[in-house]
Design a protein around this nucleic acid. Structure first.
Lengths: 349, 349
DNA sequence: TCTCTAAATGTTAGCGTTGTCATATAAAAA
DNA sequence: TTTTTATATGACAACGCTAACATTTAGAGA
């Protein structure tokens, strides 16, 4: 006969344990079964008040933190949302991701985000890496994806929102606005202000399809009015103030001159403003300047900057709303939400 | 006698499956055991070339993506790194997190980041939420934490780096620079330029302890030189261009006037530059202006901005390096890494 | 040739939770 | 009172992987 009680026997195989309190520990202390603890945590109404109190005390006393890995494995789904943006350092995406993370955070979801660096190949890899976490939803940026993205996403079978663009064929849902239309509104504004010789300046247009669509929109509307763009410059690096200065210098030297510039980004426009100041070129008298983004400085620089205001936070909020509705089974719609993009006319035009 | 072969029997209890291929599926197809697949994925050198090839083919054929939840549960640790910053929309933290995520990404770690919004209570909650994922490491910002942070972090037993500051008592490791010293260097610079009536302007100094330390550093060094700060302004909102303009207007009205302003942030300084332009106040002739951050525009605005250049990316890189070394068991040191903060003197002073 | 050692591979059990089914208890209906 | 129904709780297996231990195989040395 064994003299050692069963419960004191060492397990056959030594095993690592995180050392943290587990749900069973809580259950034992509260004198209930583990499943009751699990239920209390997921749906407090399903447990009677008396037990709930005891379990909560036990949780408090042990400092119990649920192991979401175990939960995710058991439920075959996790409370993780995967987000892939071109770059989290970009103020636009950072704003959307921040709003999105806040909305998901309120509901107990964690956001795994990663920057694809405008590299479609890399985006494929990142999406695949996210799927390894069995995410409850996926958020991508735009419609330009790597060659394997469609297959990977389809296999994942999770709700997907492609944000920041709506002019394309989404995998599932899309939240954003029409960049081509935004570009056209800038062109119409410049034409209405009497500008006839407009230059279009963008950065990384080969990779940034949205900036590219905005610039194309400007050019199309100009052409429709019989005033084709005088000059088109595509800067090879991500938008930065210095390049904006260099680019406007080049545009000002265009044969026949220019009387307006549409930039794909406020940052470039700011560089242009500084360069004009330096050269004594008057804005908007000599040249009108329009940007994109309505960044913090746009309203305060001299002259203040005419620009497009993208719905940065709304994109995040609406993306979260759509995905949560789908996750909760409240909606099966495959929606495309156009949040629009307002033109803010200021002194620079 | 059962006429249905064992393998075709329905399991006793119906159970959900993600539907995705599992490691066993791969193993079966490759004619090996599951552990061989696991080993190949984690340490390719431990599997012979012949088997490795077969397994890789099987993975390819099935489109197998490992379930990291299951792996994390089995190994009692995950390839997740938790990061808590005050705000991911802040360009400084975004740069560090981006670099950090890149370094960890190369090694197969995913980064869960969340914004605490300068709310210590909220930070506690976020840290606790991260721990539910059994992270391999934790990255926090600064030394000001919520009341429960110390206990939570201690219980987690994972390597921790507190980034962006070194002047404090870290839980484990710290990577950053001395903000007080940075502030003092600005004061010395202004004094060396002959400035005697310096105002100090910051934003949210009550919550942003690093900005607060920089401002304090400026004041301390001024006092040491017998030239106490003429004015100190603490703006109630996060740094933005508009508030910078308002604040310098107030400072310029100080009795006796001022001849320099040290801002806690380039964004505020930019607002001040615009406001001075508007008022015809000459920089640096009438008033010198210094910022912090060396943001993109600092080198290009008119006049270009004297500022401090924090090691944004290096903080991320070094944080990742330290944590990975600890995770890999290469180092048990509890290091505090001072990356310094360079003063960039430009036209505005 | 045989033993010894190292490298390669396999077997088993368990990580901590949740889905499914089972059961006890209380409230409502007959 | 008995039957029915709803509510609260529990037992158990399964999720897909990896740690620990076990075994086989190949190569070195005696």
């Amino acid at each position: 006969m064994a003299r050692i009680p069963q419960s004191d026997l060492k397990p056959v195989r030594a095993r690592r344990r995180a050392g943290r309190a587990t749900m069973s520990d809580v259950a034992r202390l509260a004198g209930v079964s583990a499943i009751t603890v699990s239920r209390l945590l997921r749906d407090p109404t399903s447990v009677s008040g008396e037990l709930a109190g005891r379990v909560r005390d036990a949780i408090e006393q042990l400092g119990y933190v649920p192991n979401l890995m175990a939960g995710g494995l058991a439920a075959a789904k996790s409370r993780i949302v995967g987000v892939v943006v071109p770059s989290i350092r970009n103020a636009f995406f950072a704003a959307s991701v921040d709003a999105l993370a806040a909305r998901f955070g309120e509901r107990g979801y964690a956001v795994l985000d990663s920057s694809a660096d405008y590299d479609l190949q890399r985006e494929d890899t990142l999406i695949e890496a996210m799927l390894a976490w069995n995410p409850a939803a996926l958020v991508l940026t735009g419609f330009a994806h790597g060659p394997r993205a469609a297959a990977i996403v389809a296999r994942a079978g999770v709700p997907v929102v492609e944000m920041w663009d709506i002019a394309g064929r989404p995998f599932d849902m899309a939240v954003g606005f029409d960049h081509n239309a935004a570009g056209r509104s800038v062109a119409r504004h410049l034409l209405a202000r009497g500008r006839r010789r407009v230059a279009v300046i963008g950065a990384m247009l080969g990779r940034d399809t949205r900036a590219s669509a905005r610039c194309a929109g400007v050019r199309e509307e100009l052409e429709r009015a019989g005033r084709a763009a005088v000059d088109s410059i595509d800067l090879p690096r991500a938008s930065n103030v210095g390049d904006g200065a260099v680019a406007i210098a080049e545009a000002l030297a265009a044969p026949g001159g220019i009387d307006a510039v549409a930039f794909s980004n406020d940052v470039l426009a700011l560089g242009a403003i500084f360069e004009c100041q330096k050269r004594g070129v008057r804005i908007p008298d000599d040249v009108a300047i329009a940007g994109f983004g309505d960044l913090d400085f746009a309203a305060h620089c001299r002259p203040s900057l005419t620009t497009l205001r993208p719905p940065r936070e709304q994109i995040g909020n609406e993306t979260a709303r759509l995905l949560l509705a789908r996750i909760d089974g409240l909606s099966a719609e495959r929606r495309v939400v156009d949040l629009g993009c307002e033109l803010i006319a200021r002194e620079s035009t």
